[in-house]
Design a protein around this nucleic acid. Structure first.
Lengths: 310, 310
DNA sequence: CACCGTTACGGTATCCGTAAGGATT
DNA sequence: AATCCTTACGGATACCGTAACGGTG
């Protein structure tokens, strides 16, 4: 079994099980490719592909597991290669950050700017999605790190570091009746329609749970995916929203009013997510250093490879 | 970069950085081995070993990370090989279970017996340790699955399935004053010295937290590593203990008395632990089927490879 | 006949062992 | 002199491309 075989196997799967197509893409002869797969199958003494009328049509059960393992193996091989490169060209490289709209718009700009001044030759990239998306992007290698709340579902090969807490506010239009109430509590909130994050956001469930635990059933009129969209509808008078404090921008949000909700809801917990059991690139560490100076970057790589001994 | 190179690299590290020794162990020539490492280092354009006076003395920083990644890669390669083998000899194989004393002694015997009747050609092995040990053994590949409470520290590449809950009991010697009290509460318990699990056990902290939350400070006279040792000292009158109900054996524990503690302490949660992102052997699944029939074994492999798409 | 995958053949590159060299204790 | 790692050389092996073959629509 060779890495080359696993790589070629993977390529065929990703090219619709078409050996000829994959061979062309890889600039190699079709028989050469075919032979490598046959050799691999012979060594494992199992067919990896389901063959139908002289065509490959799908993966066998074994093939499927081998495919998953191969992906992981080849990702780690890439890590090793990058590790070598990075050691020789410490200035260059790239850094891909997966995050949410709120972080990308309200938190990251300053840091990103600082980073690109300090490390001008690093290619930066921001990928955006829900917290779950961000985690998955890190887990499958498309991003180096994520900055978001924890994802709703457990993603086991991620490693999270707590970065900071963002208190929550109640966002309402100017002139909204809640403006006049001094000590806002849940019973006041429940009288107004609520605009909230979409289902993929853990913030959503945390906020709703507070209502539910008080036996209150808020009237959710809209589920939206980002703070700006939510704000737009709040501005239109469709309802109020519970948002992270940073989403309120005093300059631009002239038609909105923000009031603290810290006494009602737990703050938003923002985590930095890294792939566990993998190499943490120098630039990931550099970024973390800027972004969360409290975190000791010297221990991160060790912690990422936790399992030792016994 | 070849698997062979990574393997040889690993072998040298594990043989005190002595190429000659490793070569002998691997039945290959010493120059051959040396050359492979040099080729690898040349490809990565980085030295992996610190060389001192013509000797290899340790790993460089890069080498250390490559070592960690290699271990993981080679483990997964082994998984692929086992996968092939298993497909051809579904009856044979081995199954290594990492667990704690309590489970090994009070829960597993019946299941193990059933298993070995049903799958007589499978080599069974039980490794024993604290819950943390068990988790680590699974994580680093020395065991196939663990049966224990969750470990105290987070081990990120493990996948846990909840198996069952074990209610807790108060264990005391016959004739102990607590015998006579009808409704035992924390304030009764606090008057007696406590024998408890060692620090590595999450049960320990869960039990102590209950006391602490009630502002009570139990007098811990002994920390022990397994239920039988604890029982021995309880029998000697050194104190009482909070144990999982299964640890009380009516037949043999004639000098002990067990009373329910369910109203005071959360039950013990026993989890099955598997390595995430790895192949789950047929026999692991067979065992799980016997051990925790509620778990649908058909979904486990899929869940273990969670991360897909975006 | 067009498409696709497998088998056959031969040149090239890689791997690995033996032999020799260089450095250190 | 003994130990250890690296460089040099030559044969065996594995790899891969071209060519040919077999099955399918």
């Amino acid at each position: 079994m060779t890495l080359q075989q696993l790589f070629l196997f993977q390529q065929i799967v990703q090219n619709d099980f078409n050996i000829s197509k994959a061979a062309e893409l890889l600039n190699m002869s079709q028989p050469g490719l075919s032979r490598q797969i046959l050799t691999l199958e012979k060594e494992l003494d199992t067919s990896l592909f389901v063959r139908n009328k002289n065509r490959l049509t799908s993966l066998t059960n074994v093939g499927d597991v081998v495919f998953q393992l191969s992906k992981d193996i080849l990702n780690k091989i890439e890590s090793i290669k990058r590790l070598g490169e990075e050691n020789n060209f410490p200035d260059k490289g790239s850094l891909t950050i997966a995050t949410t709209h709120t972080q990308a718009k309200y938190v990251l700009p300053k840091i990103i700017q600082q980073f690109s001044i300090k490390y001008p030759f690093v290619k930066l990239r921001i990928l955006q999605g829900t917290p779950s998306d961000s985690s998955k992007m890190v887990a499958n290698g498309s991003a180096d790190l994520s900055i978001a709340t924890k994802p709703i579902e457990k993603i086991s090969n991620l490693f999270f570091l707590k970065c900071y807490e963002i208190p929550r506010i109640i966002m309402m239009p100017l002139g909204h009746p809640l403006n006049k109430i001094k000590n806002i509590d849940l019973h006041h909130l429940i009288n107004h329609p609520l605009i909230t994050y979409d289902f993929d956001f853990i913030s959503r469930s945390k906020i709703l749970d507070v209502f539910f635990n008080a036996n209150l059933n808020p009237n959710i009129v809209l589920n939206a995916i980002d703070a700006d969209v939510i704000k737009t509808y709040v501005e239109l008078g469709m309802g109020i929203a519970i948002l992270p404090a940073i989403a309120y921008d005093q300059k631009n949000d002239k038609n909105l009013r923000s009031r603290t909700a810290s006494h009602l809801f737990e703050p938003n917990l923002i985590y930095l997510g890294l792939r566990s059991n993998d190499f943490v690139s120098r630039h990931s560490l550099n970024f973390i250093e800027l972004f969360a100076p409290d975190i000791n970057i010297n221990n991160i790589q060790k912690e990422i490879f936790q399992v030792e001994s016994i």
